[in-house]
Design a protein around this nucleic acid. Structure first.
Length: 602
RNA sequence: GGCCCGGUAGUUCAGUCGGUUUAGAAUGCCGCCCUGUCACGGCGGAGAUCAUGGGUUCAAGUCCCAUCCGGGUCGCCA
């Protein structure tokens, strides 16, 4: 094996251009591809900047060097010294940025050999993701993955610049925190120095950043890792990164404007996308009623429409009982799809049932008249009225769900997205931002039979709703807001409670007695008695944002070392069992249920 | 925890109704040849725990059950 001694890299592979012709260059990198023509060999050399073609001509170089070139294989690490030469007209490769030139090798050094990789180191591969994760260091060698990671760096840098320019301080907060069982499940860390006691990894730096406001830092931000021990999704990892913000003496509008300007700037500077501000703002009620979602994908229409008034008072039991118990009958209109196959309709029924609806009906306005499972319960005039009210034309399809408000929203909201996908209505190049505002303060947990904070219990209710905290928690709205991009929640925040009395009332509303509240959040409530400024903030999901900017379907593609759906790292083999000694030091004993123990042994 | 999809050469897949070759193809890999390729080309070759365990059957990659792993999703994610 050779070394780099006496040889100094002068250029990166991808940066060489026609203007460099004639200069002597030394490039280093990995062998991407070797094309051996016998007496003439081409080797595509790759580093993080791109790919350049190097040429080895048997007639024009020493036998030893040519022999070395013949021995090159994929992913060998080499250094090449040679002249940059212009390619002849007929050999220009317009597909690569350096396609007008090539390097004629004068000296070749093999710095390291490489085993044949288990998959191609190139873009657009179709390989089992587990294999990519097992060999993540090779997966990350692929140009598109490098691009994602570089984009991530660039965005983080732009964010830091932006907030620095606006007077924000980046302040670190602890990773070893107090467990607060409210909210997501905590990752716990046993304390050796405090036997039997545990830290929790932060679900977010929420309390610390509010305390920084009490301290008077006024404008805080941090790009920070957060941990939640919940089930994973394509856009959820057990550890993820937030851009965390908190400010004092501001109102909601200040925060929204600051954030949309930030987003507009990073989209412009990182991926050259011009975003119009201000963003559309929509109340939570509107979002739910019109799109059936608190994070509506605004890239297409197909809004939910209420047809309750046209179908009420009939002999059709399903609609009647729903309407009589305060529910709704709503539909979406799928343009030009009245000829949907019956089989697909049956599939859609199952689909909405997965989202809590009991069933789904439909109206097909076909050339041959109306087809609908509830046709016999209504007159032709009723169907004409529905047609007019929904703006349906002959050839259009209505999909109808009847149930309680939130069930209708959930089912039709999901159905809307599914039909948008199936009908090809979603333009992947569109970027539709909006703010969803006026979230409910609480939602009712059927499981726990109590009201729970929708955002978190430090969120301020709207002033005018405070009287209802006790009497009617369901009607209390909060000063909370989410930023949504293309149907993905990329950020959310709120103005906070800064008055101890109000805080106590809210704790009470979510069933936290003063004693329990003090035990869990006492240090915070104590701090709040020493002069707390009005404050509020927001947290942005950096991974999701980069995923959308990079147009990837999963945040795993923008995280260097992500975990699988079962939260394991298949490369490092984490999590793993640990030595009995380690456990003893921590005063921890493992107690698996019988079934799991048996599986572990096998 | 529920539901859906998947697991066959290094990789991506095919494998029909359970039965005709030695489980097939492409690509990658190895060897030989080749002086303008860039998906280089030509000839030859090697390469399989059909995820694991059990069952049905004269016969299982194929059917059944269980388990494991991966992906999607519902619940969950203050």
């Amino acid at each position: 094996m050779e070394t780099l001694e006496g040889m100094k890299r002068t250029h990166h592979c991808g940066e060489l251009r026609k203007s460099d012709v004639g200069t002597e260059a030394v490039v280093c990198g990995w062998v991407s591809k070797r094309r051996d023509h016998g007496g003439l060999i081409f080797v595509d050399l790759r580093d993080r900047s791109g790919i350049v073609q190097t040429v080895y001509d048997e007639a024009a170089m020493s036998e030893g060097t040519f022999h070395k070139a013949e021995s090159l294989r994929s992913e060998f690490v080499i250094a090449v010294r040679g002249k940059v030469r212009s390619r002849t007209e007929d050999t220009i490769n317009p597909k690569i940025e350096t396609g007008e030139i090539e390097i004629v090798c004068e000296e070749l050094r093999i710095l390291n050999k490489a085993k044949t990789p288990p998959f191609y180191i190139q873009d657009g591969i179709d390989v089992d993701e587990m294999l990519r994760l097992k060999y993540r260091f090779l997966d990350l060698r692929r140009p598109e993955m490098q691009k994602n990671i570089m984009l991530r760096h660039r965005v983080a840098k732009l964010m830091r610049d932006y907030f620095d320019r606006h007077g924000f301080l980046e302040i670190e907060t602890p990773m070893l925190c107090k467990s607060t069982p409210e909210g997501a499940r905590d990752f716990l860390v046993p304390s050796r120095l405090n036997p039997g006691e545990f830290y929790a990894l932060p679900q977010s730096p929420q309390i610390y950043k509010q305390l920084l406001m009490v301290s008077g830092f006024e404008k805080y931000f941090q790009i920070v890792r957060c941990f939640r021990d919940e089930d994973l999704r394509a856009d959820r990892q057990p550890e993820f990164t937030q851009l965390d913000i908190e400010m004092s003496f501001v109102d909601q509008e200040d925060i929204l404007v600051l954030m949309e300007n930030m987003v507009s700037e990073i989209f412009d500077k990182a991926i050259n996308e011009k975003i119009k501000t201000p963003f559309l703002r929509m109340t939570w009620d509107d979002a739910m009623d019109r799109f059936g979602s608190d994070k509506p994908d605004m890239r297409f229409g197909m809004e939910l429409m209420d047809i309750s008034e046209y179908v009420k008072g009939s002999t059709f039991k399903v609609f009647n009982s729903v309407l009589e118990s305060g529910g709704q009958v709503k539909c979406i209109k799928v343009d030009g799809y009245a000829d949907i196959p019956r089989r697909e309709l049956d599939g859609l029924v199952e689909y909405v049932q997965g989202y809590g609806a009991k069933g789904m009906a439909w109206v097909q306005y076909t050339e041959d008249g109306i087809k609908s499972p509830f046709k016999k319960f209504y007159s032709d005039e009723t169907f004409d009225k529905i047609k007019e009210a929904t703006g349906a034309k002959t050839g259009d399809l209505l999909l109808v769900v009847a149930d309680k408000r939130l069930v209708v929203a959930q089912a039709l909201g999901a159905l809307r997205l599914e039909m948008g996908r199936r009908r090809g209505l979603i333009d992947p190049n569109k970027l539709c931002f909006l703010w969803v505002v006026d979230f409910p303060m609480f939602e009712y947990s059927e499981e726990e039979k109590r009201w729970k904070a929708m955002h978190h219990p430090f969120t301020s209710p709207r002033h005018e709703d405070i009287p209802y905290l006790k009497s009617d928690p369901g009607r209390v709205k909060s000063i909370a807001y989410d930023m949504v991009l293309n149907g993905v929640e990329i950020g959310g925040g709120s103005l906070r409670i800064y008055n101890s009395d109000l805080q106590e009332k809210v704790f009470e509303a979510v069933g936290l007695s003063p004693e329990v509240a003090r035990e869990r959040f006492g240090f915070m409530m104590n701090a709040f008695q020493y002069g707390t400024p009005p404050h509020g903030g927001i947290a942005f999901g950096l991974d999701r944002l980069i995923m959308l900017m990079a147009k990837r379907a999963s945040i795993r593609d923008v995280i260097a070392f992500p975990k699988t759906q079962s939260a394991s790292d298949v490369m490092a083999q984490a999590p793993s069992t640990v030595d009995e000694k380690q456990l003893r030091e921590l005063y921890v004993r493992v107690a698996l249920p019988k079934k799991k123990e048996k599986n572990k042994e096998e």
